[in-house]
Nucleic acid binder design. Structure first.
Length: 291
DNA sequence: TAGCAGGACGTAA
DNA sequence: TTACGTCCTGCT
C-alpha cells in the first residue's frame, strides 16, 4: 500500500535533517523512518512524494498526521513577516514540515538531547529501541525496533543505558522520567488537553527537562506550533540576523514572539536549519573568543 | 593529549 | 534573576 501526493512544501531531506527527529535513515534513493511501531520508505520523484510500507498493516492516517499533511505550509510561509533574512531561511528550507511525533518518544529523545549532538542522540535512541523495544521488521539494510513503552523503560537499569546506549549522566533521568510518566497526573490525555504554559510547567517537573527541552517536546510531540525552543544555534542566528547584539537566552523568546507571534515554531525550524547548515553566527562567536 | 560541543541542575551571589 | 561549575561522550 502506498500514499502518493503532490510535492508541494515537502522536502524529505529538509524535514528529517532540520533537527526535530532522530529515527530516520538516509538510504540514498529514499529515506526510511520509524514511527509508532511502523516502518516506511519515503521517496521523491519529479513532483510527487511516495510513502510506502513494507508491513501489512499500513494506515495512511498515521502518516498524514505525522507529516502534518493537512496543513498548508505555503500559507504559513506567507503569513510570516516579510523579512529579508527570514525569507532566505524559508527559501533554503522550503520543504520543512513540523512532524507530529509520539509524545513519550519525544520526551525521552529530548531528555537525551541535552548537552548532546544529533549523531550521538540517534545512536543512543537506536540502541535503546533495540534493547527495550520490539523487533518489527528487517530489511537488507538493518533491523527495525519500535521505541519502547514507558513501562519497559521504567524498569530499565540506568547502568545498562549508560553502558550500552552511551547516554552518560542522562541515565537516571530517562528511567525516572519514564516512571513518572506512568503516574496518573502525567496521563497522556490529560497532558494533551492542557494549555501550553501549564503543560510546559508540568513537563519541567520531569528530571532532565528544562525550558529548552520542554519547548522541543511541546513543538514536536504536542503540536504546539507557537513555541520557540532556544538552543545555542537559534540564539546565535537570532542575534546575528535579527537582534544585532548578544543578549541573554531568556530574552531571545521575547524577540521571537514579537517577530513571529503564534507561528514562532515554524520560523524556528526555518531559521535553525538555515543557520546551522550555513554556520550563521558561529564565525562571530569565534572572533569574540579570540579577543 | 587536551580541548571542545551541547542543556539541566544545583549552588551561590 | 543571573552566573557559575559539573555531569558525559566522541571527535579533532
Amino acid at each position: 500500500m502506498i500514499i502518493e501526493f503532490e510535492k508541494k512544501d515537502f522536502n524529505i531531506k529538509h524535514i528529517f535533517e532540520c533537527g526535530q527527529a532522530f529515527r530516520w535513515y538516509d538510504d540514498g534513493d529514499h529515506f526510511t523512518s520509524i514511527h509508532k511501531g511502523k516502518v516506511i520508505y519515503i521517496r521523491e520523484e519529479e513532483n510527487k512524494i511516495y510513502i510506502n510500507s513494507p508491513l501489512e498493516d499500513f494506515d495512511s492516517k498515521i502518516w498524514e498526521k505525522y507529516f502534518d499533511l493537512k496543513k498548508d505550509y505555503g500559507k504559513i510561509k506567507n503569513s510570516l513577516i516579510d523579512n529579508e533574512e527570514l525569507n532566505k531561511a524559508k527559501e533554503f528550507g522550503y520543504g520543512i514540515r513540523i512532524l507530529k511525533q509520539d509524545e513519550f518518544e519525544t520526551i525521552i529523545s529530548f531528555i537525551i538531547s541535552a548537552n548532546n549532538m544529533i549523531p550521538r542522540i540517534k545512536k543512543s535512541i537506536e540502541t535503546i529501541s533495540s534493547m527495550y523495544g520490539d523487533l518489527i521488521f528487517e530489511d537488507e539494510k538493518r533491523r527495525y525496533y519500535s521505541f519502547p513503552s514507558p513501562e519497559r523503560l521504567a524498569s530499565a537499569d540506568p547502568k545498562d543505558l549508560r553502558k550500552y546506549a552511551r547516554v552518560g549522566f542522562r541515565d537516571e533521568r530517562i528511567v525516572t522520567a519514564s516512571k513518572m510518566l506512568l503516574e496518573p497526573s502525567f496521563n497522556i490525555n490529560l497532558l494533551k488537553n492542557m494549555e501550553t504554559d501549564i503543560l510546559r510547567e508540568k513537563l519541567i517537573e520531569l528530571p532532565g527537562v528544562g525550558p529548552k527541552v520542554a519547548d522541543c517536546i511541546l513543538l514536536f510531540g504536542f503540536g504546539r506550533a507557537e513555541v520557540f525552543p532556544v538552543d545555542v544555534w537559534i540564539k546565535r542566528v537570532m542575534e546575528e540576523l535579527f537582534i544585532g547584539e548578544e543578549v541573554p537566552k531568556s530574552k531571545i523568546k521575547l524577540y521571537a514572539n514579537k517577530y513571529f507571534g503564534n507561528l514562532a515554531g515554524y520560523a524556528q525550524q526555518y531559521l535553525f536549519y538555515y543557520g546551522r547548515e550555513n554556520n550563521i553566527g558561529k564565525e562571530r562567536k569565534k572572533e569574540n573568543k579570540a579577543k
